[in-house]
């Protein structure tokens, strides 16, 4: 075959370029260890998402010293949870699946980007070095309101991060002279025990404190006994505080004779 010298040179340079591209991608995979989305996440029947151990309560979980897992469910046109908070200097493995059509889970302006195909679980491990705020968006068309599908990713300094959540069970009203309780359940999704103090402030006078130890990936209920005699009748705002997390509501104390008619 008769090939002009210039063309042979061009051919050689082209081959060097192509082999160079393949070499850089290969180096990226084996050197710095840039991993691709692959089949590690496994498959899932979308109808069983609510029964799935990982996805029935999606969110962030602590699994190792600086290692976290985040489970996210995508569906038209929202992510659950829609706001994700992780600490800086951490390694987070995301598990994302879809309840309906194909979506993406994309952290805008970064290479954190995966397709979310129904029936599949996308698994992706990300290192977060610096604190910052990012938008999460869906970049695969998913129906008429596709453009509204977004979320938020907050990377916070490590000392501002915890996985503590409060939920409180308390009566709205009590009769004067009776005792009532405000029960706060403290949950801890870190993989070590949380030793802390829960504080209740109610009305102007009372401030109660209780030490509590919440087991790793568990929860503990703190019971505050409130003496209504000290408070007197009327509306009393209260707040339970644990490590900066707050729950608050109002307790109405009524006269015994009023029979609990509230504001009457």
């Amino acid at each position: 075959m008769n090939i002009h010298t210039y063309e042979k040179t061009w051919l050689a340079v082209s081959m060097v370029l192509i082999v160079g591209f393949i070499a850089t991608v290969t180096y990226g995979a084996v050197g710095p260890g840039i991993a691709m989305i692959d089949d590690d996440g496994g498959s899932i029947d979308p109808d069983t998402i609510n029964d799935d151990e990982r996805f029935n309560d999606p969110g962030v979980t602590h699994v190792g010293e600086n290692e976290y897992e985040a489970a996210v469910v995508a569906q038209a046109w929202t992510y659950t949870p829609s706001e994700i908070t992780v600490p800086a200097n951490s390694t987070v493995t995301f598990y994302v699946t879809s309840r309906d059509v194909t979506h993406s889970f994309t952290v805008a302006g970064t290479n954190v980007n995966t397709m979310v195909v129904p029936g599949q679980i996308s698994e992706m491990t990300v290192e977060f070095d610096e604190p910052g705020e990012y938008g999460i968006l869906c970049n695969e068309y998913c129906g008429a309101y596709h453009h509204t599908m977004e979320g938020k990713l907050n990377v916070v300094p490590q000392d501002e991060f915890d996985l503590t959540e409060l939920s409180t069970d308390a009566s709205d009203e009590a009769q004067l002279g009776n005792q009532t309780t405000i029960n706060t359940t403290v949950s801890n999704d870190m993989n070590y025990d949380l030793e802390t103090t829960a504080t209740l402030e109610i009305g102007d006078q009372q401030s109660l404190e209780q030490d509590v130890t919440v087991p790793a990936h568990g929860s503990e209920t703190v019971e505050f006994a409130v003496d209504t005699t000290d408070l007197g009748t009327g509306d009393h705002d209260w707040t339970v505080t644990v490590d900066g997390h707050e729950e608050s509501d109002t307790l109405t104390v009524t006269n015994a004779t009023e029979g609990g008619d509230g504001d009457a």
């Binding site: 989305i37 397709m115 195909v117 679980i121």
Partner: peptide, 22 residues
């Protein structure tokens, strides 16, 4: 970026694609 396809298969496609530059 698709889940459910092993990295090796993506690598084969990438290599073929680069040769398509030729």
């Amino acid at each position: 970026l698709d889940p459910g396809i092993a990295e090796g298969f993506k690598f084969i496609a990438m290599t073929n694609t680069m040769f398509l530059l030729l």
